[in-house]
Amino acid sequence: MALRIRDATSHDAPACAAIYAHYVRTTALSFESEPPSDDEMARRIAAYGSSHAWLVAVDDDDVRGYAYGSPFSPREAYAWTAEVSVYLAPDAAGRGLGRALYEELFDRLRARGIRRLQAGISLPNDASLGLHRALGFEEVGTFRRVGWKHGRWWDVRRLQRDVLMDDDGGAPG
């Protein structure tokens, strides 16, 4: 596998949309009810790629997964915190690709001054919890029965990780 990780472009939108559509249609890992169109995915790539980062993992030009950072909240005080997500093609799971995408994403976000990362994981999802814990995320709470999808309620575990903190905990640079 000649795997490389690079910035996503609008040309990657159909592949990212196809990967994500699987999760939207068949799981509760995303609480969206309809998969976004290729155009909507291109809009997200442009928006999050310019404000935070959006990366794809490609194997011989075939997108096998993607990871991105997005604003945690629109309020100014949260500008130093990002929400992170990673999605892999179903047949690409379990090969270290999620970790590789996340590690590169974290470096990009740190370089942009992001200090804390947030992640939300619908439960159960042992694979995602394991990945996040292995990468230093700490669990900060569980929202009970907050998402309704596929005829049932789902819990969401919240996790966070610091990627850049001042020694004195002072104001960001």
Rank of each mutant, 00 (worst) to 15 (best):
W148M: 10
E32G: 04
G141R: 10
E34N: 08
R64P: 02
S122V: 06
P71D: 01
Q160Y: 05
T26W: 01
A18W: 04
D38W: 08
L105C: 11
A57Q: 03
V56P: 10
S85V: 10
R157H: 03
R25L: 15
G94Y: 09
S73W: 14
I114F: 01
L123N: 02
G98F: 02
D7L: 14
Y78L: 04
V63N: 02
R133E: 14
G96S: 08
A28W: 09
H52W: 05
A82G: 10
R152L: 05
T9E: 09
R133C: 01
L101E: 02
H132Q: 12
D91C: 04
P172R: 11
A93M: 12
M165F: 00
E32R: 09
T9P: 11
G169A: 11
G98K: 06
E139N: 00
D168M: 11
A119D: 03
D62V: 15
R43L: 12
D155K: 05
Y68H: 13
R158G: 03
S37T: 15
L3P: 01
Y87N: 02
M41V: 15
A111D: 13
Y87G: 07
N125P: 03
S85G: 10
R64M: 15
D60I: 09
A67N: 03
D12Y: 09
A8Q: 10
L88F: 00
L88Y: 00
S37D: 08
V163K: 05
L105H: 05
A15P: 04
L105I: 06
G94H: 06
L117W: 02
R157C: 15
L159N: 04
R4M: 13
F31H: 03
G170C: 07
R99Q: 14
P172C: 10
R145T: 06
G130Y: 12
P14A: 11
R99P: 00
M165C: 11
A42F: 08
L129T: 07
D162I: 09
S10C: 13
W153I: 10
D166E: 15
R43A: 15
G147R: 04
F143Q: 12
A42S: 11
E138V: 14
R108D: 02
R144S: 13
L55R: 08
D59H: 07
A82R: 09
A77L: 10
R25N: 11
A100Q: 12
S30H: 03
S85M: 06
R4K: 10
G173R: 15
E103I: 09
R145F: 07
E32D: 15
H22G: 02
R75Y: 04
R4G: 12
D60C: 11
G173Y: 06
S70V: 10
I45M: 06
P90L: 05
I121L: 06
T142H: 05
G173V: 14
A2M: 13
